[in-house]
């Protein structure tokens, strides 16, 4: 169990690293394109690169976001709920979130197969859409794993209002 937990933590970190590298790559692409364009030599396919990398950026952070309770909640009633109810809600929310990420992974996987069949790719650089859809699937599954771990194993962070008062 501990080995599995460690492995999962590693995956979550790796996913965030990939997303972060993606973000820095996007910054570089935009700068090169802007400078190049104003000297008559834009970066060919800059928009393709930005759009496709964006998928990695957005989903790369999902697992760590779940791991760190980063998904936004309406916490208005939380201080009034008994602790056991709050604990139960955390469990339900984690399982629900994991289900959603698995559903996203599954449906996007189906779309990726369709993309391969239709030969879909980015317009200029011909980057196959399916690659990025498969990446989204993998990152989604890691996000689901992170939420499950969070719900089952780690104790929850108290509400900020309870913390300060």
């Amino acid at each position: 169990m501990r080995a599995l937990h460690k492995f999962a933590e590693g995956l979550i970190r790796l996913s965030a690293i990939i997303g972060t590298l993606g973000l820095l790559f996007v910054v570089a692409v935009i700068v090169v394109d802007v400078v190049g364009r104003n000297f008559g030599a834009p970066l060919y396919g800059a928009q393709d690169l930005v759009m496709m990398t964006m998928v990695i950026v957005v989903f790369g952070g999902m697992a760590l976001c779940g791991r760190e309770d980063g998904h936004i909640v309406v916490d208005i009633l939380e201080p009034r709920f008994p602790p056991r109810l709050n604990r139960a809600i955390d469990l339900v929310a984690g399982v629900l979130g994991a289900t959603i990420f698995v559903a996203i992974a599954y449906t996007v996987f189906k779309s990726a197969q369709l993309s391969q069949m239709l030969n879909l790719s980015s317009n200029l650089l011909r980057l196959p859409t399916a690659w990025f859809q498969y990446a989204l699937c993998a990152l989604s599954l890691i996000a689901a794993l992170a939420l499950i771990l969070r719900a089952l194993i780690t104790p929850r962070r108290p509400h900020p209002a309870q913390e300060t008062s």
Binding site: L118, N119, L120, N123, R126
Partner: peptide, 12 residues
Amino acid sequence: MGWGLPGYTSSQ
């Protein structure tokens, strides 16, 4: 049913 532009997914 729906309409679209081949140019938006030119590889297809």
